[in-house]
């Protein structure tokens, strides 16, 4: 019998994974400054782990979070303190720190049981501020707002010493997280989360415990943010309150929106798109833009991101991933039926 898992197009996965593996070699062949590009890709990879988690929470479950930079910070600082001050091995911290972050996620999840939408956005945003205060207050461990140097990742005696090494470490996790998230979201859990988003009544009628699943969504999302935080701390090797700005939380949400909510792949594409735009593309043409537009260079970044989000919401609410799906159908049918009928 034809099941829907035939739809999950596995034949794309293997080439994509191979591309991820050979990409750094291609870059190294193509340019001297490959490490610079790897660094940007590493940031994108770390953020991807987080935005996949954000997609679970805000995309699938419909619980808006503007506090994910806070979870990222908790993961990063927890791991930095555990590894460098308590002597916990990095490998153990990779498990423990995300779990601790997950507990914070549950904590933030409690208000989400009673409020939603904008108010939840504001509450989680407040959480982001509280994390910053907390980091400053716990200066015995965090060195306050001066920032903290962090050791390199060491796994099984191997030290990840540079962007090249870090790339493989980070993208290993990216692949695992994406595959895992995709699986989980295609199972009972994903269906339950979407049901909560679209109809709490239907969800309860089929036996979904709202409290448990909402808290679980916060937990899982925070765990992934925490994992991103651990990788962030040890591969960037310096963390400070300046890294975990409220603006970053907003960018995370934009990444998910632009990529296409509740698809996981959308979060991946959106994150890549925004990070590459932010680090590589906008710096190239922002002076040029400012030369004929009556705006300050400073505002161009926000302006561009604002426009992109606006355009996507109006014209392409399914995001980049939705565009890709349409394109694929188009190519499949190309010579015979160029008119796409959406199902």
């Amino acid at each position: 019998m034809k099941g829907r898992y035939d739809e999950e197009n596995l034949k794309w996965i293997a080439p994509l994974i191979i591309l991820v593996i050979v990409l750094p070699f291609l870059l190294r062949g193509a340019t001297f400054s490959y490490r610079y590009y790897l660094y940007v890709l590493n940031i994108a990879g770390i953020y991807t782990i987080l935005t996949v988690g954000l997609d679970l929470l805000s995309g699938y479950t419909g619980l808006i979070s503007l506090g994910h930079a806070g979870f990222l910070a908790i993961g990063a600082y927890t791991s930095a303190v555990l590894v460098d001050q308590a002597g916990v091995p990095f490998g153990l911290s990779l498990i423990v720190s995300p779990l601790i972050t997950g507990l914070f996620g549950i904590l933030v999840g409690f208000p989400a049981l009673r409020i939603s939408g904008m108010y939840l956005g504001l509450t989680t945003m407040g959480f982001g501020f509280i994390v910053r205060r907390l980091i400053i207050a716990l200066r015995t461990w965090t060195e306050g707002s001066a920032g903290l140097e962090v050791s390199k990742p060491v796994l099984f005696g191997f030290t990840f010493a540079n962007d090249w090494h870090n790339y493989f470490l980070i993208y290993l996790f990216v692949i695992v997280v994406v595959v895992f998230a995709r699986r989980v979201m295609k199972s009972k859990i994903g269906r339950a989360l979407m049901a909560i988003r679209d109809s709490e009544h239907a969800a309860q009628a089929v036996g979904i415990n709202l409290v448990r699943y909402k808290l679980f969504a916060f937990f899982l999302s925070a765990v992934l943010a925490g994992l991103a935080g651990v990788l962030f701390a040890h591969t960037m090797r310096f963390i400070s309150t300046d890294h975990f700005d409220i603006l970053l939380s907003i960018y995370f949400l934009i990444m998910v929106l632009v990529g296409g909510v509740a698809t996981i792949y959308g979060a991946v594409l959106g994150t890549l798109f925004i990070v590459l735009l932010d680090f590589l593309a906008i710096p190239l043409f922002k002076d040029w833009l400012a030369s004929f537009m009556a705006v300050q260079v400073a505002d161009i970044q926000s302006l561009i991101f604002g426009c992109i989000m606006f355009l996507f919401i109006i014209f392409q609410p399914m995001g980049l991933y939705g565009m890709w799906l349409k394109m694929r159908i188009y190519w499949k049918l190309f010579p015979f039926n160029p008119k796409i009928k959406q199902t």
Binding site: T31, F32, S33, Y34, R35, Y36, Y39, V40, I43, G147, D163, M236, F238, S240, D242, H243, D245, F279, P283, A298, Q301
Partner: peptide, 20 residues
């Protein structure tokens, strides 16, 4: 290079200056 007072962009910019 421009870092917008963002430490991460500062690192990216430094890599660009050094390598590129």
């Amino acid at each position: 290079e421009d870092h917008q007072y963002n430490p991460q962009k500062a690192v990216a910019a430094a890599k660009k200056l050094i390598e590129q």
